[in-house]
Design a protein around this nucleic acid. Sequence first.
DNA 1: GTGACACACGATGGATCCAATAACAACCCT
DNA 2: AGGGTTGTTATTGGATCCATCGTGTGTCAC
Lengths: 228, 228
Amino acid sequence: MTHEATTTPAAAPPESVTSQRIATALMDAILAGEIRPGEWLRQDEIAVRFGASRLPVREALRILESEGLAVLSPNRGARIPELSLREVNTYYRMRERLEPLTLIDSLDHITDAQIDRIEGIQREIELNTDVSRFLVLDREFHMTSYAACPSEMLLATTLRLWNSTQHYRRAFMLLAGNDRAAVVNAEHRLLLDAISRRDPEDSERFLVGHIRRTRVALTSHPEVFASD
Amino acid sequence: MTHEATTTPAAAPPESVTSQRIATALMDAILAGEIRPGEWLRQDEIAVRFGASRLPVREALRILESEGLAVLSPNRGARIPELSLREVNTYYRMRERLEPLTLIDSLDHITDAQIDRIEGIQREIELNTDVSRFLVLDREFHMTSYAACPSEMLLATTLRLWNSTQHYRRAFMLLAGNDRAAVVNAEHRLLLDAISRRDPEDSERFLVGHIRRTRVALTSHPEVFASD
DNA sequence: GTGACACACGATGGATCCAATAACAACCCT
DNA sequence: AGGGTTGTTATTGGATCCATCGTGTGTCAC
């Protein structure tokens, strides 16, 4: 749209609305790890932080809820949910089934420029050594591959699954390091090749393998999850 | 706690909160077909209908949005989305991939009493001739089979997919009638048998077949969908 | 007659104030 | 001293009023 490159893959919602602006800022803070699972989001505190009244904050919390980033209890407030190992495992199994569909539908409309962009991201991943940077690049890699999917609902559901598990991916990476980078790069290269050939079967195969291996690796570190 | 029975039916969200009460009522109205896709949900009108101010109505609309039953445009309002044939097709392909997972996870915890209940519902389906009643019973059949799934997120996602496509299922049934009842009953019986044996492979096989055949039947009537 | 512009109306978004609910703590009674 | 109860406080839920945005209509110019 504009000359500025947007970091978010989908069309960003208009920022003129205060509630949406607060929701976006809170979402970024949560995904960046500044707000962690288990923390309460007090309306008054957020309101003064953004120089607004509590009303748009309440709407923002509802938006966060619809994104799966917060749970609202009546008369109790909003908090970031703490996920158990079992729950994250389920989220990843949902991803293994859903994301191939997102990718397959995206393959029907993906452009050469988008494929080039994915390859550029992968090159940057292979040169990168910082863990936090990897989380951003990995997300960009996959989201760009999904960007051409025509179904907003499918994209939104995929994004929800990514957002809800973001904290545990980071906790795992900070703990285990990126010494498995060679495996990730091999998987990404195979996936990228299948995408560039616009081959739905191979794309699904390598994507499922990639998500599944990540799930197994994640769940081998129970200490980063809630105690169930 | 006290000797008095609780008025709320335990599983349902607390109705003491006005916004939740309005959201539930609106959701029932949408699923019952009283509010149809494309219609605008004006805050003022809903507020006077429920004898409340516009504020809880705004929260209720946010809840509806998170359920996938409404889309909110800033400064424009909320409306029930009109889905094209392509979009409903995508929703059903999502169901084909996700609901087997919901069912498989449910099979690990499902009780004999729940299985008996599913069989009772199926018996009622076979005796029933009314189309509207079938929609309710069919939903009950499947939702009861998913009820033991321990993942709230997976259940909620499944429910969203059902709710979002409810209107088009009804439009199709009212148009095509239930002359395919024999096929549905056969599919349900096979699925029920697999569930009662707690067989995940057969359960997935028959469930996918059931959803897929329904999708093909649905999409053979393009006249019930938005023009894309 | 048709196009564009401007104005007015209606609906939504936001701020402030008040009521209700839940966690917390001190207190009293047993 | 312990458990139950009650009062206090902080936080959320709701109502009313005002500002802002989008839309429709009417008019004026071409």
